[in-house]
Every structure is written in structure tokens, then in C-alpha cells.
Design a protein around this nucleic acid. Structure first.
Length: 592
RNA sequence: GGGCUCGUAGCUCAACUGGAUAGAGCACGGGACUUCGGAUCCCGGGGUUGUGGGUUCGAAUCCCACCGAGCCCGCCA
């Protein structure tokens, strides 16, 4: 579907061609600023250089060109400085929203044949998910949807479960030592929460042992290694990697509990994966690849048996790939995992949604893959995002100062429910429907809160702000959507096919202007891997609609043409809100 | 010591990646036809965009230096 923006872009190209300009110049086509009349603006500055003329003169000449060639589509063109401000003709806008209010999808992007694999979530199975995971989950999901929405059909969402390693041994050891065979059923809590308790327990006892050793005069580093609990955990890891049947049996059982817990959380968040990889299954291939590199002399072995790679030639350091006792480290499995994925998908791009603290890790990974001559070495992209902090400082699972994902959702749900309970707007809903609605609002609130900030910036999580349903929030967008639904219900219409004449006023043009740029925003968000661009846009649109609503009669309007045009416009706004919210994973209720 | 990221209103964030007079929310103060949904709308105060240079028609945005914050450079993941 042609949009006003794509139309203008086309016209600029046409203009350049006619003027005999061969090179393609990126000409900024932007939303007209609120203080000027018009919807779409061309900034002629970059062209001024090419034509060796003043921006004004070029702007005038563009104006003239449009008036002559496309005069029927524009109502008014104003040149201000080097800017060309274009107001589209009313009939053009009518046709635009007529189609938009009837079609489900706008705009349509050309289909891309590439395959993109996106890994996100990637939890450790020794503790429940917290706020940091929520950011990851929500960001990963929205990015995947964004890629899909903008034309990439083959987006494969994968999760990598970190189900092995020393941290897993720690919680397992604690359960073995102090658990007395307790299960999630007996404890009456989700498996991930139960295992998380044991992880914290381990860290507590371990810290005691380390402190005791330090008191005895042992240096800190040595104390951390010599503490009996650490020794035991390492022994457990060795047994696990050696395939000890009893250790594997317990490990499998505990992991299943945790994964069952995760499933509940994912389901709640509305997140699914196309494939799940388990580190416990990929690390072996990683070890083989390390051996391969060793055989080829790309890696080297120290006297103690540990295996390393020298990356100093590319500005990095020496990196350990296998411990002296032969067990693998974090990066070992990553080598195996991507090899498996390459064999499976031959992807064009592999996106890792992983926190910023691992930026170095991914540089190292890429450098190693290059040394190994892997064809996919240049296809990896680390979508790095910053941490979620609390006003009191960093969240630390080991110290138990985290905001638990499940608990937070419960709290949001409860708060939303309280609000719904007494509201006349939702009085007709059954108890179950009220809880469904409360859940949607809870999800809308937290997802919007996580997505409204640039991924590269840290989020300062202030609970009272996240629990707020007013202002720049998810529920605000949901509310706007519900309001429009209510309008149409009141109007008693399902489809309006109005093609007559109507003159849009300034605030209506304001709305049209924003809607017209929806496609640009989607593309921008995709280019930057940044859903916050879309989140901001949806808020702005909702805000503008509420403003419009407050001082313009729609259903109440007595002039039949105006009423129809306004209802269509409302519908168009709703369509965009809906489409964008779908991308973000934010559910929109019909009433709230 | 080295590398990466970030400093914008009291607080939390925007600013279409170099474009017009830097905008929202929260908080604070005042208000909204007896209401098409008040989870809304309007008005108000609030800024030397960390500091100092540079690049050009034009800088919050690009370059350099400093100041400050975060993350990383583990036989943790």
C-alpha cells in the first residue's frame, strides 16, 4: 500500500531524475513539525549542494515540480527556509484512511528471503527469572516480531538453556545436602523458585566458609577455591561431565522442575520459541571444535593441560577454552551451539539478545570463529542491552536482592484487578473475564515499561512507576484502544465505506500525519534493533488521539459526512495501535 | 592500566541518527460544555543538553581533550 511518505520519497527521486541527477542522495523526508502547517516535510539541504544553489531555491523548485506533476494529491505546499511542507489533499487522506480502516495490515513490506535466528532469554537453571530476564524476554520477543513484521518471514526464535556448569552444581549440591528430598509439590512452590532457594543457601554457607578461611589468614582468592563447598561443587561438576549416572539422574530431575517453572512464566508473558537448545547437549560439540582447533595448531595447550587461544593479534587477550581438568567453560558450548545452528538453518544472521556485560565474550567468540575459518563468523550480531537497576543498586541473585518476575506480575495483576472491580465500564464482565483483563493490563504495564527505554540504556526500575497505569504507560495505550472500540460500538457500525468529501481540521491532520509515518518507524526500529522507537510512537499516537477526542465530537457529530470521516479516522488510529502493540507483544482489551 | 557504553527539566526518559524555537511522563500548582469512557484533556513554572575546544549553511547528535557514572578484560556464566 502506498503511503504518503513513500509517495513523497518517490516524487523526490522522480524530481532528481528529471533534473538529470544520477547519484542517489538520501533526502530527509520527515514528519512536519507541529508548529508548521503540513504533514510531510522535505529538507532540501542535501540537494542544495548538488544543484549548487540555495536550499530555498531548490525547495521552491521541488514545490513547483510537485504542483505540476502531482497537484491533485496536495492541498498546499509551503516553503519555509529549506523546508518544503506538504499538506495533502482531503480526498487523498479520505482514501488513505478508508483503506486503512478496512485492511488489517499496513504498511506491507516486501518479503525478504533471508533466515534470521534470534536467541533470547537463555536462563540458567539454578534460579527463577527476575526483572533482568523480563527485559531480555520482552526485548527479544519484540525484536523477533519486528523483524517478521518488516518482511523477514523466516525468523527463528531460539532459547538456550544454561543447564550445566558450576552454578548448577551449586544449587544441586545444596539440595543434596540440605534438601531432605523436598520437591516442588511438597514445598508448594514452583520448581524454579525452590531451586533458587537452594542456590541462595549455597552462597550463604559458602560465604561463611570463605570468611572463616580468610580469618585464618588465607588469601581471598585461595580461600574461595579452598572452601569445602566449592571443592564439593567442582567434584560434582566433574562427575556430571564424566557421566556419573546418579548425578545425572538428580540433575535431570532438578532441571525438569526448574524448566516446568519457566514454562509457566513464559506462557504468562506470551512468549514461545521455535527451538530450544540445551547447553548440556551442545557443549560436547564445542569440545570437539576445540580439539579441531588444537589439531590445526590454532589453539595451544599449557603444561597443566588447559587449552587456550591467543587473540592478541586482533587486539584481544588469551582466552581459556578448556580447564586443566578437561571440563568446558562457557564459551566452549557457544562454539558448539552456533555450529549446530549453522548446520540446521544456514542462517544469514544470528542475533544474540544478551546483556551488555557479555560484549567482550561475543567479540572473543567471533574472533575465534574467524580463526577457525567458519563461514558464519561474520553473521553474528550481539544485541546488547543494559541492566535493570533498582534505586537501591544492582540486583544480585546471590544476595537475594532481586525482583522476581512471577511476583511482580502477581502484584501488577492484583493492582489492576482492584481497579477493575469497582468500575462500571467492566461491570458486565464475569469474574474470569475480569482476571483475564487484569492480566492483560499487568502485561501491558510491565512490557511497555521495559520497552520504552532504548535497549542500550539502563533501566532504573522504580516500582511505584511501573505500577502506575497513567501517563506514559502501556495501560494508556490500551485505554485508548478500548475507547475507540467503545466509539464504534456506540455508533453501531462495523464497517464504514465513506468516499465523500470532508475537510480535515488541524488536529485531524495531526493524527493523519502521525499514522502516515508508521511504516518509517517500523523500519527505523528494525534498523536499530530498538523497539523503543515503536513504543514511543504508539504513545504519541494515543496521546494525540485522546487530545482529539476531548474536543471533537465523533459519534455525537450531527453532520453525517463528518461523523463517518471521523469514525474512519478513529478506526485507522486503532488499527495502527493494534498492529504496533502486536509487534511489542502488548495485548489490547476491547474494554477496560 | 586497557576496551566498550552513557551524561538532556527536581526525578525517569524522548528528540525521526546532522535539520526549523530541545519535547513527554512523574512530581508540584490551577482548571475541564452536567461527559461519544476522568486509566482522559487543558494551562503553568521549570534547560548554558557534564565542561572546554573543533568540523559546517546548521551540533544534544560527528571529532579531540578533560570530568563523572556503568560494564568488561575470570580455570564464573
Amino acid at each position: 500500500m502506498e503511503t504518503p511518505v513513500s509517495l513523497i520519497k518517490g516524487i523526490v527521486e522522480e524530481f532528481l531524475k528529471e533534473k538529470g541527477v544520477e547519484q542517489t542522495i538520501p533526502v530527509p523526508v520527515q514528519m512536519t513539525r507541529d508548529e508548521f502547517e503540513g504533514e510531510v516535510t522535505i529538507a532540501s539541504f542535501p540537494l542544495a549542494k548538488v544543484f549548487r544553489n540555495s536550499p530555498q531555491a531548490v525547495a521552491e523548485s521541488i514545490k513547483e515540480f510537485i504542483e505540476v506533476k502531482h497537484g491533485n494529491k496536495v492541498k498546499k505546499i509551503e516553503v519555509k527556509g529549506g523546508f518544503v511542507n506538504i499538506s495533502f489533499d482531503d480526498s487523498y487522506w479520505i482514501e488513505f484512511i478508508r483503506r486503512l480502516s478496512r485492511e488489517d495490515v499496513f504498511p506491507i513490506f516486501p518479503e525478504k528471503t533471508e533466515t534470521i535466528v534470534i536467541e533470547f532469554s537463555s536462563p540458567n537453571t539454578n534460579k527463577p527469572q527476575h526483572l533482568g530476564h523480563v527485559r531480555n524476554n520482552v526485548l527479544g520477543w519484540a525484536t523477533a516480531m519486528l523483524l517478521q513484521r518488516t518482511g523477514t518471514k523466516n525468523v527463528i526464535k531460539v532459547n538456550l538453556i544454561n543447564d550445566r556448569g558450576i552454578h548448577i552444581s551449586k544449587s544441586m549440591l545444596a539440595w543434596l545436602k540440605w534438601g531432605n528430598g523436598i520437591t516442588p509439590e511438597k514445598a508448594g512452590k514452583k520448581g524454579d523458585h525452590l531451586i533458587g532457594d537452594f542456590y541462595v543457601m549455597f552462597e550463604k554457607e559458602y560465604k561463611k566458609q570463605v570468611d572463616e578461611l580468610i580469618r585464618q589468614g588465607v588469601p581471598k582468592e585461595e580461600a574461595m577455591e579452598r572452601a569445602p563447598l566449592m571443592q564439593e561443587a567442582r567434584e560434582l561438576l566433574r562427575k556430571w561431565e564424566a557421566g556419573d549416572p546418579e548425578v545425572l539422574r538428580i540433575w535431570r530431575m532438578l532441571n525438569d522442575w526448574v524448566l516446568e517453572g519457566f514454562d509457566i512464566t513464559y506462557k504468562r508473558l506470551g512468549i514461545t520459541f521455535d527451538h530450544i537448545d540445551y547447553e548440556s547437549e551442545t557443549y560436547k560439540l564445542g569440545k570437539e571444535i576445540v580439539q579441531e582447533g588444537l589439531d590445526q595448531g590454532i589453539f595451544y595447550k599449557k603444561e597443566d593441560g588447559s587449552v587456550w587461544v591467543d587473540l592478541t593479534d586482533v587486539g584481544l587477550d588469551h582466552k581459556l577454552l578448556l580447564r586443566s581438568d578437561g571440563t568446558s567453560v562457557y564459551i566452549t558450548q557457544d562454539l558448539g551451539t552456533i555450529e549446530l545452528r549453522w548446520n540446521r538453518y544456514k542462517m544469514d544472521l544470528m542475533i544474540y539478545v544478551v546483556a551488555e556485560e557479555q560484549e567482550y565474550h561475543f567479540k572473543v567468540l567471533q574472533a575465534i570463529l574467524k580463526k577457525l575459518g567458519r563461514p558464519y563468523a561474520d553473521k553474528i550480531y550481539h544485541l546488547s542491552y543494559a541492566m535493570v537497576d533498582l534505586p537501591t543498586g544492582k540486583m544480585k541473585s546471590r544476595e537475594g536482592t532481586v525482583i522476581d518476575a512471577d511476583d511482580l506480575l502477581d502484584e501488577l495483576h492484583q493492582l489492576a484487578y482492584e481497579k477493575i472491580k469497582g468500575s462500571p465500564k467492566t461491570a458486565s464482565l464475569s469474574e474470569e473475564e475480569k482476571h483475564d483483563l487484569a492480566e492483560k493490563i499487568a502485561l501491558g504495564a510491565i512490557k511497555f515499561y521495559m520497552l520504552r527505554v532504548d535497549p542500550k540504556k539502563r533501566i532504573l526500575f522504580r516500582k511505584e512507576e511501573a505500577l502506575d497505569f497513567e501517563g506514559y504507560t502501556g495501560p494508556f495505550v490500551q485505554y485508548t484502544h478500548a475507547r475507540i472500540s467503545s466509539l464504534w460500538e456506540k455508533a453501531g457500525e462495523t464497517v464504514i465505506d465513506f468516499q465523500g468529501g470532508y475537510e480535515f481540521n488541524a488536529s485531524e491532520r495531526q493524527l493523519l500525519k502521525i499514522i502516515a509515518f508508521y511504516g518509517e518507524i517500523l523500519q527505523e526500529a528494525r534498523r536499530k534493533y530498538d523497539p523503543s522507537a515503536l513504543t514511543n510512537f504508539l504513545y504519541r499516537l494515543a496521546k494525540e488521539f485522546n487530545r482529539y477526542y476531548a474536543n471533537t465530537p465523533i459519534v455525537k457529530e450531527e453532520d453525517e459526512d463528518a461523523r463517518k470521516a471521523r469514525l474512519m479516522l478513529s478506526k485507522a488510529v486503532q488499527q495502527v495501535l493494534k498492529d504496533g502493540s502486536d509487534v511489542l507483544g502488548i495485548p489490547l482489551p476491547e474494554k477496560m
